[in-house]
Design a protein around this nucleic acid. Structure first.
Lengths: 240, 240
DNA sequence: CCTACCGATCGGTAGG
DNA sequence: CCTACCGATCGGTAGG
């Protein structure tokens, strides 16, 4: 009996599975052609269903886009959590976050994400996404500042520093194609290397590779007052 | 008589001036709200003219966007030319290009440019822009390869390296606002610093700052078979 | 240089 | 889960 239940997906699981298939298809089209150049008739047709069927899974086209953005932020939060646990210096955390996030975006979950067309969302949804992005950037700025304090990151305007590397990451979808010639590992290593060295502090006599060991400290996420892990895990589990 | 002519702008000069005012207004709206979320009625209204008047300056909305993209590429070509003249090593040229291009995009001319919504163009225009971007990237990749050969740039996949830093630049318009708190000089220096160090080769015993002097060489633009200076200058002159 | 309009696209729904 | 449709938006133009 327990066997039976675990072998056959529940109605709800089936529905979530179908939702994720739709998101993958839609996200791919949005990234490739732009939100406004993709009609739901086209999305439906490529899934061999009709448009009204789509509407049993998503109430509006904008909601579909909203969830693609939300998932990208969920992945970002997971990367923040990971770097928060594993990183030691400010630089180390920033680089580990970048590496992890690029792997997520280029991975299977990344196929369901969209990073552009924020303008197409409803004002409320857009504000929601904007706030989450702000929280995200705030953690990164805190880490950059920490790195400047612990001597691992070159001093300068933390806001600008974060804009530069997050810009490069957010542009990923403009050129990366899932299943294309370049693998996520390769790309993540490239990002890590360039930004690891790009923002590292001068190390007299050193070559700039790696990060010095720093004193353990309480998590910068906690320091910045952000916590999104709860809401995140639910969606991450549901959507995969 | 010569006095008179040079003091009073010709009909054609006036027209070009009006065109550039329209481009500035439209580009600002496109960047802020997205191409599809800006109607020409709105653009016209904010310029205190009617939509049909707009159509005496631009044949279609897409053409307006096309010119905003073309201008961005003109500025990019100017930066390539500058770096080609002034740079010595591969690294030096790449960094000088980045610095110059960021200054252009954040400067007065940059107000008339758009870097996103490429999908909204007609297939022909999109192809035109794509080809120019390719030529642009090709020059950059050639410089990166040169830098790897002359010992100024860390070895690796040149395509990935170019994607990373051009991504950061192309994302500029997502957060930079003309007339905002941050100046173009400041931003350009930040970009140059991060990428200058990020892509530099290991320098045993050195701190990674600056670039070693390299042997003079023929221009990489020539080497890459690109030449856009002709078409560019005309537009750059007309549009300012 | 304007007012008024046409026509196409497409998000969303009725009805079955 | 489908076919057929409605309604709004908006690019582009007629006519003056």
């Amino acid at each position: 009996m327990a066997q039976w239940k675990s072998a056959v997906p529940s109605r709800e699981e089936q529905r979530d599975l179908k939702r994720s298939v739709i998101m993958r298809e839609a996200a791919a089209a949005f990234r490739r052609f732009g939100f406004h150049n993709v009609s739901l008739d086209e999305v439906a047709k490529s899934l061999q269903i009709s448009k009204p069927t789509l509407y049993t899974y998503f109430p509006t086209k904008q909601q579909l886009l909203f969830e693609c953005h939300s998932l990208a932020l969920d992945l970002g939060d997971a990367s923040i959590d990971y770097a928060s646990r594993e990183g030691r210096t400010g630089l180390d955390r920033v680089v580990k976050m970048l590496d992890h996030y690029v792997r997520q975006l280029t991975g299977e979950m990344g196929e369901m994400t969209v990073l552009t067309d924020l303008h197409a969302l409803t004002p409320e949804d857009r504000e929601t996404i904007r706030k989450r992005r702000d929280g995200f950037d705030r953690v990164l700025r805190a880490w950059v500042r920490e790195g400047m304090a612990d001597g691992s990151i070159h001093k300068g305007d933390p806001t600008l520093t974060v804009m530069v590397f997050m810009g490069a990451v957010n542009w990923l979808h403009a050129w990366f194609s899932h299943g294309g010639p370049r693998g996520g590992d390769e790309i993540a290593e490239h990002f890590s290397r360039i930004f690891g060295r790009g923002i590292a502090a001068d190390r007299p006599g050193g070559s700039g590779r790696g990060a010095p060991a720093g004193k353990p400290r309480r998590s910068a996420r906690a320091a910045a007052g952000t916590s999104a892990a709860g809401a995140k895990s639910a969606r991450l589990k549901r959507v995969k």
